[in-house]
């Protein structure tokens, strides 16, 4: 605030103009996508040379969306992606925060080596792991409860768990929680221990309730790649009923692409993420900005 006092109103107006310009550049493709999803193809191309490209005017309908549900089992894909993302997020929050809790607040021999090894995994890009990982998950045993007998078969390819389990543990989530836990006074643990609380109780009753912003950040940062995953399901999922939403895009690459339908499907799989993000954005951006990723 101090700065605005000795700066002229002219320069703050200039700053606002730049802000609006950046916002326009950031938003125009997304607005164009959502607006086009409501128009027939002919009108999309007709409107392109004028500002009408960004306005829901003219022949507006949900026809493209109806066509999408006919062409693609979109409802099935949405349910799959919601399930896969939700399970990954919930288990990820639990397992990564538990690990960060122990590394941050307990006296454990060798924890520094473990923490360094965990952070080292950040430098391995997923794309380089993907191919050996396909080979490896195909060797893993698969337990299935069939009626009253437990059946064991080999290979995780073409299942739900192959889309979930490899992505639960995440070094970046552990790092975020660790940073956040370091800022919570350790005297709280001491006090709880004097009252006879065990470590898990301290984790559940003392530390986690204070770590809300970190949890919001980890939730979004786990949800996004889970919802957006494309390369991995492309390699490990064959059955249509197990596919996530991003794979649905392939259904549109045929002769005579209907761009209105493509835009409708793209909007359909983007809107849930945008809504979720807007709902959580305050705690997400603030928590990263104030406590999360400090260099």
């Amino acid at each position: 605030m101090k700065q605005t006092l000795n700066s002229t109103s002219l320069s703050s107006a200039a700053a606002m103009a730049v802000r609006i310009l950046f916002a326009a550049v950031a938003a125009f493709p997304i607005v164009f996508m959502m607006v086009s999803s409501l128009k027939p193809d002919q009108q999309i191309f007709g409107d392109m040379s004028s500002v009408a490209a960004f306005l829901p005017i003219g022949n507006i309908s949900l026809d493209n969306y109806a066509a999408v549900f006919e062409r693609v089992p979109a409802a099935r894909f949405l349910i799959n992606s919601i399930g896969i993302s939700a399970v990954t997020v919930v288990l990820g929050i639990f397992i990564n925060s538990l690990c960060a809790f122990a590394l941050s607040r307990m006296e454990i021999r060798g924890k520094r080596v473990v923490f360094t090894a965990i952070l080292a995994t950040l430098i391995v890009p997923f794309q380089t792991l993907a191919l050996p990982l396909v080979w490896w998950v195909n060797q893993l045993p698969y337990f299935e409860l069939n009626g009253f007998s437990l059946e064991i078969s080999k290979g995780w390819l073409d299942t739900y768990q192959v889309q979930i389990i490899p992505f639960i543990a995440n070094a970046f989530s552990i790092y975020l929680y660790h940073q956040y836990f370091e800022s919570i006074p350790k005297e709280l643990d001491e006090a709880a221990r004097i009252d006879g609380a065990g470590w898990f109780t301290i984790y559940r009753k003392v530390v986690m309730p204070l770590a809300g912003p970190a949890t919001a950040t980890v939730a979004i940062l786990t949800f996004l790649p889970a919802w957006n995953s494309y390369l991995w399901p492309l390699m490990v999922v064959q059955s249509e009923e197990l596919r996530p939403v991003m794979i649905g895009i392939q259904y549109f690459f045929q002769l005579n692409v209907s761009w209105g339908e493509v835009m409708a499907y793209a909007s359909l799989i983007t809107i849930p993420v945008v809504v979720l993000f807007i709902a959580f954005q305050r705690s997400f951006i603030n928590s990263i900005a104030s406590s999360g990723v400090k260099g």
């Binding site: 397992i95 473990v114 470590w199």
Partner: peptide, 15 residues
């Protein structure tokens, strides 16, 4: 403390 600590680290570490 050692045992419960390693127990908490283990799930993420194993994965």
């Amino acid at each position: 403390e050692q045992i419960s600590g390693w127990g908490m680290i283990a799930p993420a570490a194993v994965l």
